[in-house]
Design a protein around this nucleic acid. Structure first.
Length: 288
DNA sequence: TTCCAGGTTCCAA
DNA sequence: TTGGAACATGGA
């Protein structure tokens, strides 16, 4: 099937680090949406895909989000203007909340390559085998599978100390559908409070789940890369002692997180999460 | 081999 | 309430 949408950049959207399980083979991206294997590619402005409806693709890649309008609201200075121009077409994916929750618990204190291999191992061990063309994929493990998993098996997947967090969180969410439905209905701050009650979920992981799976585009996750963005491009908005302090320590404290998070949300506004993702990926690209 | 990673938790002060 | 160490593991 084909779809024409502008502006959209499939490669940027799948490469930027918001999602971990898509793979590119022979010009096609392969991934799983709602337990169905999908393949998709972009030729100029045409989006070509198999095994999915147009509505599914539109929803998953947020193609109905008005990117021009988001840009208009988010562009507060020359730097963000440049970054948006460089990465134009990157969109926030609407991930499955369960997969997003477990993925981002696993994503703490790991580089993206390691996260990908960890989640692949987890899916291979506890998910279902799927194939499209000759490409084999594994669906993300459903809640019941992980609830009954053994910690030793999670350790074998490379989760390390995150294993017990994944198990505890999985066992705490008895009714995943109603749990996430409720979060979806709640305003940002209340939903975040609920998420932080889960083992292995702190402010950063909660913000990622809210942004990447619950359509709270005002969420502004702060990680080591966003800390660098602040130090390198937005230090004028903070005191010198604050910038000096966060420059020296590797991880940031809870108070420092809140300060940067609140800056991001008030400065970039209701779609701060979009600004965050553009800034995040551009900072990573530049270092490489 | 060493460094560091899309941080969170625990505990002492 | 807050600051800082501990945490398992693997990619670069």
């Amino acid at each position: 099937m084909k779809l024409i949408q502008t502006p959209f950049d499939l490669d940027l959207t799948l490469c930027c680090g918001q999602i971990f399980k898509w793979e590119k083979r022979g010009g096609w991206w392969y991934g799983i949406i709602n337990d169905n294997p999908i393949k998709i590619r972009q030729l100029s402005k045409d989006l070509e895909f198999e095994n999915a409806s147009s509505d599914l693709i539109k929803n998953y890649f947020s193609l109905n989000d008005n990117l021009q309008e988001i840009k208009r609201k988010v562009v507060r200075d020359e730097y963000i203007k440049t970054v948006l121009k460089k990465l134009w077409g990157l969109r926030i994916i609407k991930q499955d909340p369960w997969e997003c929750l477990i993925s981002y618990i696993c994503a703490t204190y790991k580089n993206i390559a390691a996260i990908k291999s960890m989640l692949f191992n987890l899916s291979k061990k506890f998910g279902e085998k799927k194939s499209l063309d000759d490409f084999i994929m594994y669906s993300f493990p459903n809640p019941k599978k992980l609830q009954s998993a053994k910690e030793s098996d999670l350790l074998k997947c490379g989760l390390g100390y995150r294993s017990k967090y994944v198990l505890k969180t999985a066992r705490k969410i008895l009714e995943p559908n109603s749990f996430f439905d409720e979060l979806y209905q709640l305003p940002y701050s209340q939903a975040k409070k609920r998420l932080i009650q889960l083992p292995g979920v702190g402010p950063k992981v909660a913000d990622c789940i809210l942004l990447f799976s619950l359509e709270k585009t005002e969420a502004f996750p702060v990680d080591v890369w966003i800390k660098r963005v602040i130090i390198n491009h937005y230090s004028d908005h903070f005191s010198k002692s604050f910038i000096s302090k966060i420059s020296q320590s590797r991880s940031i404290s809870c108070l420092e997180y809140t300060k940067i998070n609140e800056f991001g949300r008030s400065y970039f506004g209701e779609h701060a999460g979009y600004a965050q993702e553009y800034l995040f990926y551009f900072e990573r690209m530049n270092l490489k």
